[in-house]
């Protein structure tokens, strides 16, 4: 499956009027990449669903995520920057590979855990923070999409709660295995500094040290994301003392 938007565009030199435009360009690029990856994940999910209603649901979600990606690209154009994306960038690729392993195992529940509990927690929390400080329609778009992603989580929650009710131990073990895989990659991506080289999404140097210029910080985005993740795991019913240990053991 190919993403709707070309992933191989070259970084452009930003010449927009706003000095913060290059920062927003990178924030939008990360968000757009995440949305495209989510769209790819839902499309893949549709391929292992047996129930036609589930297939339709997954494809609808995929379309919705593509719409989000397009909205972020449009916000970039409004401030005079081209928003690139790269679902093959190293961190994002690890997240995609983790999801594809669930697909290979035809593990529908595993797919939901990765996409809805882990990746969407990150999206909802970080988009919400960006939505609060983003200028004009850019901020509004992030806030709107954060709300829509939150609805996706709510939808999955009932399925996952029912699954946990069948065998809590087995369910929690599965979440932990996926946590080690996915959240470790996400934690490295969210680290305050990119210690292992360029992320392959930012158009020039790493955007993290510049985030304070738009009233954000890498620490805040990471903190909000992990908080949202813990709260989502709470809603699933996994004991808080267990999930606390999981999160504190992540790399920083």
């Amino acid at each position: 499956m190919e993403p709707l938007i070309d992933v191989n565009c070259s970084p452009m030199e930003c010449t927009s009027l706003s000095p913060s435009a290059p920062i927003w360009q990178d924030i939008l690029a990360q968000a757009m990449t995440g949305e495209l990856l989510a769209a790819m994940n839902y499309t893949s999910l549709s391929e292992i669903c047996d129930d036609p209603a589930e297939v339709a649901d997954a494809l609808e979600h995929s379309e919705c995520e593509r719409g989000h990606a397009a909205a972020f690209a449009a916000e970039g154009r409004k401030i005079g920057v081209e928003v690139c994306n790269n679902v093959d960038a190293k961190h994002w690729k690890r997240l995609r590979d983790a999801f594809l392993r669930c697909i290979t195992e035809r593990d529908f529940i595993g797919c939901l855990i990765v996409q809805e509990i882990m990746l969407e927690s990150f999206a909802v929390a970080s988009y919400s923070r960006v939505g609060k400080v983003g200028p004009g329609s850019l901020g509004e778009t992030f806030a709107r999409i954060a709300a829509e992603e939150g609805e996706h989580v709510d939808h999955a929650m009932s399925i996952l709660r029912a699954e946990r009710a069948r065998d809590a131990q087995r369910f929690d073990d599965k979440v932990y295995r996926l946590h080690l895989d996915v959240m470790t990659a996400l934690a490295q991506m969210l680290a305050k500094e990119c210690k292992d080289g360029h992320c392959e999404v930012c158009h020039a140097s790493c955007v993290k040290p510049s985030l304070f210029e738009v009233s954000l910080s890498a620490a805040e985005l990471r903190g909000a994301s992990l908080q949202q993740y813990l709260k989502t795991l709470d809603m699933l019913g996994i004991p808080g003392e267990v999930t606390l240990r999981w999160v504190t053991q992540l790399p920083v």
Binding site: A224, L226, G240
Partner: peptide, 10 residues
């Protein structure tokens, strides 16, 4: 950086 974001829990 991290502690203020941890929700109350056991």
């Amino acid at each position: 950086d991290i502690l203020p974001w941890i929700p109350p829990r056991a």
